[in-house]
Design a protein around this nucleic acid. Sequence first.
DNA 1: ACGATTACATTGCAGTCGTATTGCAAAGGG
DNA 2: CCCTTTGCAATACGACTGCAATGTAATCGT
Lengths: 211, 211
Amino acid sequence: MPRKADHLARRKQLADALMRLAASQGLEAVSLRHVAAEAGVSTGMVQHYFRTKDEMMTFALDMVMSNAQERITAEAGAGQPLGPAELIRTLMIQILPLDETRRLEGHVSLAFLAYAAVKPAIGDGLRDSSGQMRAFLADQIRAVQATSDNAPRTDPLHAATALLALVDGLGIHVLGRHYSGEEAVAALDAYLGLLFGSTPDPAGAPATSGG
Amino acid sequence: MPRKADHLARRKQLADALMRLAASQGLEAVSLRHVAAEAGVSTGMVQHYFRTKDEMMTFALDMVMSNAQERITAEAGAGQPLGPAELIRTLMIQILPLDETRRLEGHVSLAFLAYAAVKPAIGDGLRDSSGQMRAFLADQIRAVQATSDNAPRTDPLHAATALLALVDGLGIHVLGRHYSGEEAVAALDAYLGLLFGSTPDPAGAPATSGG
DNA sequence: ACGATTACATTGCAGTCGTATTGCAAAGGG
DNA sequence: CCCTTTGCAATACGACTGCAATGTAATCGT
């Protein structure tokens, strides 16, 4: 093989440029030329690594999702083992756009969400990971209910569905500057307090900053 | 004045065409020519009623928001006066995309949400109405808490924030076909059950259909 | 009746889009 | 050595975009 190049690394670099663009100017500003310029390369190179624009978009979306998944599962396994209640809160906090990095990723996700509404093939991956997350959360909620007698007997799957929708909604409102990240965390804690039948105990290091 | 024409009606008609396009093919498919074709008129006419594309987009967004507001407040005042708990549920149900009409409007809203993330001027109106809704919901929640001794003492504003985020998140998931409208309603009722400290009583006619 | 004004249609323009094509330098295998 | 494959650049093409300019028909005030 002549003139080796790290294909995957190049693609990630280009996808990074794409995400920067999408976050600052929306997906409508994402074109081959713009991505190339943002990455500081020629448009021909972008074409070399992605034969079509759709391939580029799909790769970028996959990257966003796998990044998020990775960070979430990493956070879940880090530190000392947490009880299910603390674990749930930790995970949900990770989803909220509380720092600039996650604000950026949130914008990209939102853009892709609207994109997926039109191109159904794009949304399949989203559906899968959302479903897995929902099932996992339901399990954790079940665990909390099993070990607590204060916790109301809410259907765990419904509660998980609501929880995921809640953090997604909170994230969107924070992105839209409807309120700060702290208020979103407070609303989340209010829900968790209801769900676990206790005064919320945000012992785990609370979020640092909000928009 | 020569050759009168109902300016506002024409604009609404064009905005309708825009919304149809946005719902079926996303905001990226919205162009002056496409809107004109969808409305069955010439592109020149579109230009006559909207001097710029941005003016058209802004008008359409305003229309979506005022439509939603109108339908919601209409629903709130219709029928016999409801207690605060039933009122809240009725309003939230109105927001969910449970029928084809609201699915369409939901798609448009989602598209505009992503659009507003980039063009801050667009998002101002959204912020306002969201803030009003939140305050109103907080009042209603306070009223429920005042008349019920089962209801946990959750901060009403936080609960309202969570409630609004919850239905928005549920709506997005339903639009993304993550689950059906019925499941979204069930998750909503689960949350309301927690919030009001009672087994949910979905006496008000439940949603008709789901995606 | 007539000029002014409004309502629309048509056309043209400069620019951007995704993509296909072409070209060329670099490098490993025969 | 040479030749083929790969990495990347440059460019051309047709379709599309928002918008400006221009034209024409209808209507009202006078």
